[in-house]
Design a protein around this nucleic acid. Structure first.
Lengths: 190, 190
DNA sequence: CTACTTTGTGTCAGCCACTGACATAAGGTA
DNA sequence: TACCTTATGTCAGTGGCTGACACAAAGTAG
């Protein structure tokens, strides 16, 4: 009742959650409160989101599909790491288009351990799917697992840093990470 | 009252938890149940462990200290990745000595998404401390972050696989992972 | 040896995340 | 028109977890 009804209950719940989480913090905000703000009942909140955290983790499948399809379209004659960074760059416009929604969300996550855990789980799940995709393209299981691990670590790190501080472009952050990884295994540390 | 009293309440709670989690599953086991089995009250359970999951995550600090000290004792003239694997090998005896406790624990975690999340958080926390240690030894911040990510991914992967299937020695799993990482950025994927 | 302090525990009331069951209203379909 | 589906409300209940208070055992200080 408080939010406009020119949107679905689900969307109103997400917007109300982001607003309240930013204002009061995640822990101090109850599901019932979000529901009231969105003009529905607590029960309806839990029909749309399986738990309180999920209200912030909706786009996961979109990211998954985007990255996997970019990997499958990458050239076949490059290293696994190069394949991943090729895919990240293909997917980059989608991230850049969502910056306005993603930045406040990132701020909330940065302040909330339980959401950071959820974010780690999301990255781990993506990582596992990416490892599978690399294996399909000919990598060994262990190489696929390790490459996807460092690749997704770089992806998540670059994206989060970029959302926190937009003064370095996302493309630049990806590029730098790839350079570091390429040299990491050959050069001594000092 | 059911467990012998020749041990602390904390130890009895841990033992009771492992037993019940294996028998009934994590979700189907209540904190109150564990407490009764250990001869204390639910409130006492939560005095020893800040939440139900923590009863399985006690050795974390031991691992952290062990790995960090091993990193600091590694030779200075090798690559960051080599530094990490050197440290893993130094720490290996401690893992091998705990295999009997760690294996059932790993089985429970493998069956329980919420515990897998906690395990990811633990690895991420260790990873962050290890990145800091590498930086102290002269690595750049980005290199430190990425190297510690892939290193800890390899460490966690090798350890978990070894606990699930002891037929390949832990030293061998570490060795293989290091080989794969060294070649990852240079060779094409097929 | 007594008084004080610390540490570990029990008891109880209560909040909140989350669920199952049942009812109802609105919109589409046979 | 009768039915079915979908989204929601209502309500009662379980379980994780916390704060407050009381108490007992084991130091520790004087």
């Amino acid at each position: 009742m408080k939010e406009g009804s020119a949107s679905t209950a689900r969307e109103r719940l997400q917007a109300a959650a982001v607003m309240l989480f930013e204002k009061q913090g995640f822990d101090a905000t109850t599901a019932a409160q979000i529901a009231v703000e969105a003009g529905v009942t607590e029960r309806t909140f839990f029909r749309h989101f399986s738990n309180k955290r999920e209200v912030l983790f909706d786009g996961e499948e979109r990211v998954r599909r985007g990255l996997l399809s970019a990997i499958n379209q990458a050239p076949a004659d490059i290293s696994v790491v190069a394949t991943l960074f090729h895919a990240f760059d293909e997917f980059r416009p989608e991230l850049e288009g969502r910056q306005d929604y993603a930045a406040p969300r990132q701020r909330i996550i940065d302040n909330t351990p339980t959401l950071q855990e959820r974010e780690l789980a999301k990255i781990a799940s993506l990582t596992s799917d990416i490892a599978f995709a690399l294996e399909q393209r000919g990598a060994s299981p262990l190489e696929a697992r390790l490459a996807s691990q460092i690749g997704m670590a770089a992806f998540a790190d670059a994206t989060a840093e970029w959302l926190r501080d937009g003064s370095v472009k996302l493309s630049e952050r990806f590029y730098r990470a790839e350079q570091v990884i390429s040299q990491m295994t050959t050069a001594p540390s000092n």
